[in-house]
């Protein structure tokens, strides 16, 4: 393991992945290099088909790469067999999916406790951990409900709690806000950001939601399976008019003025970030 790997929680070099439909190749990742440091709140952005999900799947030991080097938490993912990958995921990685993907037959609390039980913790201890994380994601009072009795936002909070319950070092979230309305999505991102700050858990999120990109501590832009831009810092204020309206009670004119103001600030910060990288 080199020095680069020592300081990275994710270390990717020369990553290639190509899907085949019959005899037609569909390249997904094209010689991608990436380092993510512990505690980062990184967002992978890009158009549909740019390779965001593939990247997360490979980092999450859910999928193999055709070639390249993948080290997560210092472990060579590609050298692991299926069983080892599953164990690795269970103990080191939390997942948040676009479609929540909770277990239908379990309550919210049981969904969160499930991973703890898989880790071998007793049911009582697992339930206590589940309660703790449900409170952290502000739905402690809904622990007894089943997924079909929860709203989309609430379900995604349960999914975040589940991802955190196994005490992972890394959380991978694939389009976590795509199925949520913008307000709920922003709340969720704020929550994930807060959890990242408080617990130091590394987040790698794929999204093309401007609100998510705006919250990123680091924005990695993908196009055609390659990183085309990577910023350490992006403007905090919202980028969209709809997302710029936390106070929807304001008159439209004032909301638009606020929006223009934040856009200007955003552009200025972005420019400053670009100059720093060039220098």
């Amino acid at each position: 393991m080199g020095n680069n790997q020592d300081s990275s929680i994710i270390y990717l070099r020369g990553l290639h992945k190509c899907y085949w439909v019959g005899t037609m190749p569909f390249p997904a990742l094209h010689g991608l290099d990436l380092d993510i440091a512990p505690g980062e709140f990184a967002v992978v952005a890009g158009r549909s088909g740019s390779g965001k999900s593939t990247l997360l799947n490979i980092v999450g030991a859910l999928e193999s790469a055709d070639s390249g080097r993948v080290e997560v938490l210092g472990q060579d993912i590609l050298g692991m067999n299926s069983e080892q990958r599953t164990r690795f995921r269970l103990h080191n990685i939390g997942f948040v999916f676009q479609a929540y993907n909770l277990i239908r037959v379990f309550t919210a609390r049981e969904n969160v406790a499930y991973v703890c039980q898989l880790q071998g913790k007793s049911r009582k201890e697992s339930m206590e951990i589940a309660n703790h994380w449900l409170h952290e994601v502000e739905i402690g009072h809904l622990g007894y409900r089943r997924p079909d009795q929860l709203s989309g936002g609430q379900q995604q909070r349960v999914a975040v709690a589940r991802a955190l319950a196994s005490n992972p070092k890394l959380i991978l979230a694939d389009e976590p806000t795509a199925n949520l309305d913008s307000m709920t999505g922003r709340h969720l991102i704020r929550l994930m950001h807060e959890l990242n700050h408080r617990f130091g858990t590394t987040f790698l999120i794929s999204s093309h939601d401007p609100d998510v990109k705006q919250a990123a501590g680091r924005l990695i832009k993908l196009a055609d399976g390659q990183i085309v831009e990577s910023w350490e810092e992006v403007p905090e204020p919202p980028q969209s008019l709809s997302a710029s309206c936390p106070a929807n009670h304001l008159p439209l004119g004032e909301r638009v003025r606020n929006y223009i103001k934040t856009r200007k600030q955003s552009r200025a910060r972005k420019r400053r970030g670009g100059n720093q990288r060039r220098s």
Binding site: L62, E83, R89, L90, N101, I103, V115
Partner: peptide, 14 residues
């Protein structure tokens, strides 16, 4: 199938 995929992703073995 989807549920099993999720269960596997979050650490359930085959």
């Amino acid at each position: 199938t989807r549920e099993f995929g999720v269960l596997m992703a979050i650490g359930t073995t085959g």
